[in-house]
C-alpha cells in the first residue's frame, strides 16, 4: 500500500509544472552560489598557499554551499509539502483515500516517502555539481558525505514538519505559511544558546556540516521526523474516526 501511494505521489509531483519551476529555480540559485563561491576561492587561493595547513577546496567551497542548499530547501519545502494533504482536501480527492481500505500510517508514509524521493534527487543533483570540483582538485569525500547526510536529514525533518501542517488544514497556502513560519522560527533558535540552540535542527546540521557525525545529532533528527510523522498519523486517524 505504501508503495502504491509512494509511486502516485512521486509521479504526480513530476506531473505538476510548478515542481519543474521550483527545481529549475533551485538549480539556478545553487549554481549561482557555486560559481560565486568558487570565484572567491580562486581570488584568495594565492594567499592561502602561503599559509600552513591551509583550508582546502572542500571546506571552503563545498561545505558553505550545503549551508546555502539547506537554507533554500527550508524555504522551498513548504511549497512542496502544502500539496500533500491540504490540496487533496481542497480538491475533494481526499475522500478517495479516506474511504479506501488503507491505514492512516500508510497514507502518511506513502506521501512522505514520495516527496522525500524527489527531494533526494534535488540533493543528488546539487552534490553532482559539487563533485565536478574533483576534475581540478582533490576533494575530501568524507566531509562531502557528512555534509550530504546532514542536509538530507535536515530536508527530511522539514518535510515531516511540512506534512504535519498540510494535515492540519484544507488551505494549501495556510499549510505552506505555517510550515515556513515554524521552520524559520527553528532556524532563528540557532542564534540562541544552550537548550534553545539544541532545539534547532540547523544547529545539529552545522555539526555535520563541519564533518562531525555524532549519535546525538542523528538521534535528534530521527526523533524530530518521528514526532511530526506520528502527529500527522494521529491527526488523520482521529479525523477518520478509526482506532
Amino acid at each position: 500500500m505504501i508503495r502504491t501511494l509512494f509511486k502516485k505521489e512521486f509521479r504526480s509531483l513530476f506531473a505538476a509544472p510548478s515542481t519543474w519551476w521550483m527545481l529549475a529555480l533551485l538549480q539556478f540559485i545553487f549554481s549561482w552560489f557555486f560559481l560565486a563561491r568558487m570565484d572567491d576561492y580562486l581570488q584568495v587561493q594565492a594567499q592561502l598557499t602561503q599559509m600552513g595547513n591551509a583550508p582546502g577546496a572542500t571546506i571552503s567551497i563545498a561545505a558553505p554551499l550545503t549551508g546555502v542548499l539547506a537554507l533554500v530547501l527550508m524555504m522551498l519545502i513548504p511549497l512542496f509539502t502544502m500539496r500533500l494533504i491540504a490540496e487533496e482536501r481542497r480538491n475533494q480527492t481526499w475522500i478517495l483515500l479516506s474511504t479506501a481500505p488503507i491505514s492512516a500510517t500508510h497514507i502518511v508514509l506513502g506521501k512522505y516517502l514520495g516527496l522525500l524521493a524527489l527531494l533526494s534527487l534535488v540533493i543528488a543533483a546539487c552534490t553532482l555539481m559539487v563533485c565536478t570540483l574533483a576534475l581540478g582538485t582533490h576533494l575530501d569525500f568524507g566531509l562531502i558525505l557528512s555534509n550530504l547526510l546532514g542536509v538530507w536529514l535536515l530536508t527530511a525533518s522539514y518535510a515531516a514538519l511540512g506534512l504535519y501542517f498540510s494535515a492540519l488544514t484544507r488551505q494549501p497556502i495556510v499549510a505552506a505559511f505555517g510550515a515556513l513560519a515554524v521552520s524559520f522560527g527553528l532556524w532563528m533558535l540557532d542564534t540562541g544558546s544552550g537548550a534553545m540552540r539544541a532545539l534547532s535542527p540547523n544547529a545539529h546540521f552545522e555539526n555535520m556540516s563541519s564533518g562531525l557525525i555524532s549519535t546525538a545529532n542523528l538521534a535528534y533528527f530521527a526523533l524530530f521526523i518521528a514526532v511530526f510523522l506520528s502527529l500527522s498519523i494521529r491527526l488523520i486517524r482521529h479525523e477518520r474516526g478509526g482506532k
Partner: peptide
C-alpha cells in the same frame, strides 16, 4: 475499517478525480 472499506465502492457528490 479496512475489511469493511474493502467491500465498498463510493462515488461522492463531487467525483474525487486527480
Amino acid at each position: 475499517p479496512e475489511q469493511a472499506k474493502a467491500c465498498l465502492g463510493f462515488l461522492p457528490e463531487q467525483p474525487p478525480l486527480y
